[in-house]
Amino acid sequence: MVDKKNILRVKVSNSIGINVDKCYQCGKCSAGCPVSGNMDFTSSVMMRMIQIGEEIIDKQILRSQTIWVCISCGICLSRCPMEIDIPEIIDYLRQCSLEKKMQNKKSERNIIPFHYSFLNSIKYTGRIYEIGVAVEYKLRTFNFFQDLSLAFYMFIKGKLPLFPNIIKNRKHLSFFFKKYKK
């Protein structure tokens, strides 16, 4: 007997208060989703998979590309007749997937390292230091040649500051990171 408490269907309801059973599979969310074609299964299929409440299927969701290529554009929520907040569900699933170290292998090579490079820039300077984010992202992905000419033109146009813009009260900010352990 599996512990029901650990099933995504129950966790989504307990942690973020969303009842996935309200979904009646109309498919409007997937129809409007700009990245349906890049997902391994679309948002409405994902909703059905969570409803089933089986551990094997849950793992499939947490390991999927679907939850990482979602851009959080909000179209699904705005069109869902049951007003189900899919972007919020997906935010939650991404965090579950990280906690359980089940990140999708493909997304681990691009989307996820970008998020971490971005987060670290905030952690160390309080703001986004574009060159810092780019360098860390390249180191994390070994993708050294990507966008070099774009960066060059942006620099020429004065769109790429050379030095970071560091905030004064960095202590306050690093305290957030310490508390949230990221």
């Binding site: 959080s72 935010d91 965090q95 971490y116 971005f118 905030i122 905030i167 900010l173 990171f177 990221k182």
Partner: peptide
């Protein structure tokens, strides 16, 4: 004065609480 990054389209993906705390600051 002394504003920080709001977390933009990224932080909410990996850390929900931080994504509220940053703009709240």
């Amino acid at each position: 004065e002394d504003w920080n990054c709001c977390g933009a389209s990224t932080v909410h993906n990996i850390n929900n609480k931080l994504s509220v705390t940053l703009p709240a600051r």
